[in-house]
Simulated assay, not measured.
Amino acid sequence: MRTQVGIVGAGPAGLLLSHLLARRGIESVVLEARSREYVEKRVRAGVLEHPTVELLREVGLGERLDREGMAHEGVSLRFDGEEHRIDFADLTGRGIVVYGQQEVVKDLIAARLADGGDVRFEVSGVRIEDVTSDPVIHFDGGELRCDVVVGADGFHGVSRACVPHTAHDRQYPFAWLGILAKAAPTQDELVYAHHERGFALYSMRSPEITRLYLQVPVDTDADDWSDARIWDELHERLGTEINEGPLLEKGVTGMRSFVTEPMRHGKLFLAGDAAHIVPPTGAKGMNLAIADVRVLADALTTHLQDGDDTGIDGYSDTCLRRVWRAEHFSWWMTSMLHTDPAADAFDRRLQLSQLRQTVSSRAAATTLAENYVGLPHGSV
């Protein structure tokens, strides 16, 4: 087989890139190791920045998002027994939408297949070769020759190993124990709680499903936490009304920051989690992936249709400016809200001082709000 763009990975980055390219008359093939059922049910991020929502609407993917997504105009920070709302609408004139990553993926798969797009699931044995000359993606049962290859196959995929790179890595001394519960949300917006026993987050996925997190040690086994223990700890740390319900999912997620530089080698381009990871505190992961492929779609269009390499030559630097802004914001949120097991009383008083400044200063609150709702694409 031959195509113009071979895409490894059918997550939001790979699927959206394929969709954007198709609208410009550029052929692509998407290869995914997992089954369609798996990728459509894989629960991940749920916060869509304002620029992400605008882009999805612009390219014809807003119908179910607008019908089922939950628009939020702020978040709350809770500490010292009090809750403080950061009003995004007032501070920035914009907001966010809570709409699960798996829902974005469902919409993209449906759109690609309806347009005759070539998306192949359960493709095994993928390896990428000759990325500096005539790229080819080998897989069990065949090969795909391409003008360019895009690695959108996540942190554990095969693509990043094909790019000579410098890795910037920071692992945090705590993790998140997350649950998905069949319980109607009692809050209209997300609540971030700083507590002496550890951080907690109240969020939601739909009017019937609640998503909640607890800070736990990195070596935590989710099976050691009974449902009753989880609910008791959430009540303690959040200090607010919570509906309890049967758990649909329970798991532990490590916290890390990771950046690959550069995001390109020859005719291979990395996008999304294949190139960078952020701690989930700032809700940036999926949004960064979408920002990557928006830049990449423009760059590949001018390269393949006009022979202009300006965009692809600048791809890595352009994306990394936004990546490092998101890394800083995510680190700042994480450091301000979590209880570091190695921190002393001095450190904890610094955290409380930062929290008080953030909720009492309009300038500080605006900085949080601007970063949270998403800086305009192309502005960083």
Rank of each mutant, 00 (worst) to 15 (best):
L113N: 08
R2M: 05
L91T: 00
R127T: 15
K182F: 01
S206Q: 09
V278H: 14
R170M: 10
A271F: 03
R67G: 06
V150K: 01
A13P: 12
E370C: 07
A184C: 05
A363K: 15
E37S: 08
R23W: 03
M263S: 07
G46F: 02
H19Y: 02
A114E: 09
L108F: 02
I137K: 06
D298A: 09
P279H: 04
H328M: 11
A271P: 14
R120K: 11
D87C: 12
A228V: 02
L21I: 01
G307V: 01
S226F: 10
D118A: 13
Q171V: 14
P51T: 00
G239C: 06
R229F: 06
R356N: 11
H72S: 09
L248K: 15
L304S: 07
G14C: 08
H194I: 03
G154R: 09
G74Y: 00
I242P: 00
V323A: 14
R145A: 14
S361F: 10
K267C: 07
N371M: 12
G6T: 04
R64Y: 00
L61Y: 02
R44Y: 08
R42F: 05
D90I: 06
L144V: 13
L300C: 09
A161Y: 09
P164A: 07
S316Y: 08
V53T: 08
G100K: 10
E370R: 15
I128M: 13
T3L: 12
A45D: 03
V163K: 08
R42D: 11
A291R: 13
D317C: 09
E370M: 14
E82D: 11
I26C: 08
Y99M: 01
T220W: 00
H194E: 01
G141I: 09
V136W: 09
G151D: 06
Q187Y: 05
V218G: 01
F258N: 04
R85V: 08
D140H: 15
E49M: 06
D66A: 02
S379D: 04
A181I: 01
Y99Q: 10
